[in-house]
Design a protein around this nucleic acid. Sequence first.
DNA 1: GCAACGCATTGATCAGGATCAAGCGGGCGG
DNA 2: CCGCCCGCTTGATCCTGATCAATGCGTTGC
Lengths: 246, 246
Amino acid sequence: MNDQSFDLKSCAHCPIRHRAVCARCEKDELERLEEIKYYRSYEAGRPVVWAGDQMDFVASVVTGIATLSQTLEDGRTQMVGLLLPSDFLGRPGRAMAPYDVTANSDLTLCCFRRKPFEKLMSETPHIGQRLLEMTLDELDAAREWMLILGRKTAREKIASLLTIIAQREAALRQTAPKDGSSFDLPLTRESMADYLGLTLETVSRQISALKRDGVITLEGKRRIIVPDFEALIAETGDDADGGMLV
Amino acid sequence: MNDQSFDLKSCAHCPIRHRAVCARCEKDELERLEEIKYYRSYEAGRPVVWAGDQMDFVASVVTGIATLSQTLEDGRTQMVGLLLPSDFLGRPGRAMAPYDVTANSDLTLCCFRRKPFEKLMSETPHIGQRLLEMTLDELDAAREWMLILGRKTAREKIASLLTIIAQREAALRQTAPKDGSSFDLPLTRESMADYLGLTLETVSRQISALKRDGVITLEGKRRIIVPDFEALIAETGDDADGGMLV
DNA sequence: GCAACGCATTGATCAGGATCAAGCGGGCGG
DNA sequence: CCGCCCGCTTGATCCTGATCAATGCGTTGC
């Protein structure tokens, strides 16, 4: 169990309060949510649920990273979701998990028992509204991801993933990605491969190639420095506007 | 403009009334929707909107098939959505289309001007609830699709697509897919290739291979007969339960 | 200090699907 | 009726990324 540097009891001090499924809640709605919430922690690498399991809660990711993945009968696996802090896990109205959910790092969830959550959703407007908005955003992300999986080369896939991570990191700091900025990869080579539909060897080779070509610099295995952000985007294969939504 | 065999004026006789975004509406909600609705038709092959265009309406597909697709700067394209009757097009709260939308067959849309639709959504519960449900279903479908794009072989991709189409056809008739059942492919080889992240030549070859191996029979170029449905599913690479959600 | 393990890199070879190219067949317009 | 075009099929070859395999490197545990 990993210690938390924030107060787990209070929504008022919650680090994801303004982005999570509860972001739009009024005080009274928040109080009712607070009554049914509880926290769970998972160590890096632990399963949260397996596909097919009963799942009697929904949750927000508070800290850490979780992945959703699917596996074919012969063991090939594809990541189909990457949940960062404030992202929502589970589906109101469904009892069975359709995907394997894994704690990719040490993970803390803010859980709500499913039935009371559904009741609250049907009685108050703001949770459902926010959840719709978040689901539409996820659908957009999934469609961007489909383009990557279906049509991009290995090099473009890596460049796209680095761009996505850099942009999310920047969004957390409320800044645009800048030349010379650096960030940590929150994924192993194998997880990157599962994300991109590649093998880990190909991931490693393409990262080496981007390094060799000066598009990125490595600090250790995990820290990436991007000297020229435009140059990285040019490697993604997207057209000039960068495929930016919104 | 294609003639319609149903009365375009009345929601009461609408063929998609029970599955579309309006499915849960009460009489008064439906009346307000009816005030702001209008129909549009597109011939097969015509664009509905281009990515980046202003889009001042949202819509339900009434008849025909529309596709969402994205294109890289060098022309590679990936289909990211396939809209069948009752599916929803557009996003409340967003003015710009993020994808190219094309009429894949003759197409009729039931359109709502976006602003009044958003107002109605904020004032009545059932549209937003239904839209959330439909969006969550689409997200599930997108994730299934990501597994296909990222990890399946060409043969498995074709078998998966045939299975998906057969299941949707069967769902329309409210039956399970049966051995010996047949259906028409609603897509050209090229559209199938864009759906699956393949080239049209590979699609053609794999269909020929499945035919040669007795998994399917062809009647003309477009009509597929599946003598043994289990055998088709075995070709998809999914594990025994067929990856069925819900 | 060293063994063992997990993660990553790099090399050699292979194969699945892309690419380039030719030809088929049915529907449509002239 | 003929010629053309579009959607499709089939063949030959190429190339990207998978596969199999060995090694490096940092951390942990003895």
